[in-house]
Design a protein around this nucleic acid. Structure first.
Lengths: 343, 343
DNA sequence: TTCATAAATACAATCGATTGTATTTCGGTA
DNA sequence: TACCGAAATACAATCGATTGTATTTATGAA
């Protein structure tokens, strides 16, 4: 009961060799059915359970992939994780889930731990703080296949599965413009991250297309937490001219702004129309419901995992395939925060 | 670059023994400072990284605890996980996070995988489907310390860290009664789980205390998903007498009901007052905001981890401490869905 | 019955790190 | 200079499973 039973225990009680036990447990054709049966029976009787530490060490394969996301509680990331798990399990892989909590220091440590545990590959969406890549380059040099999803870095030879954030930002902004908005504020998020740069670029492109001048004071950079939305809304309302639209680079900050507007008796969407980004479940529930950009999280997880597993199975002969960037479409979900505007 | 460097590689290039390298890397006093420096330098140069598979196998300790929750995306569980991670990291432990997705089959497989990976202990909140315990008994017999949090099973000798669900259910119901509700519906959740049984018992106790007869038709059992809330609301509205209060065993189903009531032009709280359970972030954001029972998730995680680590460090001499049940208080958060009722 | 061949099993090395024991080296003292 | 004890290092077994090679056993044909 105390000490786990090993193949040697089974071998000894049956008076056969451990190698035969190992082969039987792996259903090798080199062991006769009769012995297999005896071994299986004894294994069950003793409550044998394979020691994966030993097995993986010997095989130098763990059948495990590591996943690092900023926060597991974000709906987008948890749907990506579901997609990853489904695909991975189907291929016989396990998944180690980790969260960086948006901290570079933690991200570094997690990468190190995953590598030390010899995961076969890593899927990664970087933290908001990640502006140095030494830990990622280290992973690359180390020969561990990995892949970015959603939030990526420019590292040569590393593939990514991304959302078309530029298009998303463009769609969100143009939607506001087509609904009559002229002075459109934008919560942009940390511009160190490509996803936020791209959303902002889409915002500017839409303005440009519709010949609306870009005004720097309408662009609010922040961490996109709920309270950042409150503060941003406050700043925008204090401008000398009237805001009539807001595109926030995520839903959470948009909701913060909505709360502030409600307090100030600013009507959404009649006074100010709002579009968020990410389609958090809460966005469909609040009142007014929030127009947003939906990202196919589950699908991203599936695709990223498939690509990673490909890379893993190809790894030894290495330099074969080039890095490729897969870009998925996002879609605008129109809701009450930008609909039927009466002004 | 391709093959990871080992202590033997370091040993060979420095013409010393691998055991010395190992001791140096573990900062053993048996190695001179001079040699340590040489070894460290070479280790960095070669990009050495300890192979935890080998190390853990040899030491038969992984410094890792496994965590199984029904869903990582639930706010309550992700705050428990934060508490677990904080406490575990502080003690030098890693955490493997897994989600059962409320499926017994998956829970079984996850337990097996964690055991096969020889985690030092497991923290577990069972799935809604878990009505057989063979996998848990197996873990117990196997000698792996584990502990329930929030959702537990009656297994002798296994400790739990729980919320006082009875009190929570009582508080929620009494709150409705004190606000004038007489016909109070209840979404009870699967009664196989103790937490839901206890919430329901609290509901009945509050009715009894205030001499309100219990009516079975007011009790709706379901899976507590959002759509279950919609269906439950529909059923309750079709009763021959007028419902004026609703206590849902979680927030999600309560929100489903609110949506349905809004559609049917039933006013919350004036026609029907509502109290949920769990304090999901969305509950403070929706309109009207949802009165709910707040559970100290982070604290549960901290306490459960501390207890588990105690048990792990005590494990060899085993049968020492008895199983204990720690019960934490929940607290009612009063919001608009049950406040200032005018009827 | 005998031998060739296939089937079944045993032997032994290995994965990478750890650790108890044995050996060597060194500094200091008589 | 010889020797003792401590410091530093080397040797070798081990954790549990896997796997290539060698050996034994069984089967069937001549």
């Amino acid at each position: 009961m105390e000490n786990k039973t090993t193949i040697h225990d089974i071998a000894k009680t049956l008076k056969i060799d451990a190698s035969t036990v190992s082969r039987a447990l792996n259903n090798s054709p080199r062991v006769s059915q009769k012995t297999k049966d005896r071994i299986m029976a004894k294994a069950n009787e003793l409550g044998y359970q394979r020691n994966l530490l030993a097995s993986n060490l010997r095989k130098s394969v763990t059948n495990t992939i590591g996943v690092i996301v900023p926060r597991i509680s974000r709906h987008f990331f948890s749907s990506v994780i579901s997609g990853i798990e489904e695909t991975a399990y189907d291929s016989g892989y396990n998944v180690m889930i980790c969260q960086s909590l948006e901290q570079l220091k933690r991200e570094r440590k997690l990468v190190e731990t995953l590598l030390a545990n010899r995961v076969d590959g890593v899927l990664l969406s970087v933290s908001m703080e990640t502006d140095e890549f030494d830990h990622l380059l280290n992973m690359k040099n180390n020969g561990t296949p990995f892949l970015f999803f959603d939030r990526h870095c420019e590292i040569e030879g590393v593939s990514s599965v991304l959302i078309d954030d530029f298009q998303g930002g463009f769609d969100a902004t143009e939607h506001l413009i087509l609904n009559g908005c002229k002075n459109i504020g934008h919560f942009s998020g940390p511009q160190e991250l490509a996803i936020y740069r791209n959303r902002t670029a889409g915002y500017r492109k839409a303005l440009e297309k519709h010949k609306i001048p870009y005004r720097p004071e309408l662009l609010i950079r922040s961490g996109l937490m709920e309270n950042d939305g409150v503060e941003g809304a406050k700043t925008l309302l204090s401008l000398p001219y009237k805001l009539d639209g807001l595109f926030s680079a995520n839903d959470i900050a948009a909701i913060g702004a909505m709360k502030y507007f409600k307090n100030e008796d600013v009507k959404v969407p009649d006074d100010i129309a709002i579009v968020g980004f990410s389609n958090e479940p809460v966005s469909g529930i609040i009142d007014p419901s929030l127009t947003t950009i939906d990202q196919p999280g589950f699908q991203i997880g599936q695709i990223a995992t498939k690509l990673l597993l490909d890379e893993i199975s190809r790894a030894p002969n290495s330099n074969a395939a080039m890095a490729k960037t897969t870009i998925l479409k996002s879609s605008l979900i129109e809701r009450d925060s930008s609909r039927n505007i009466s002004h």
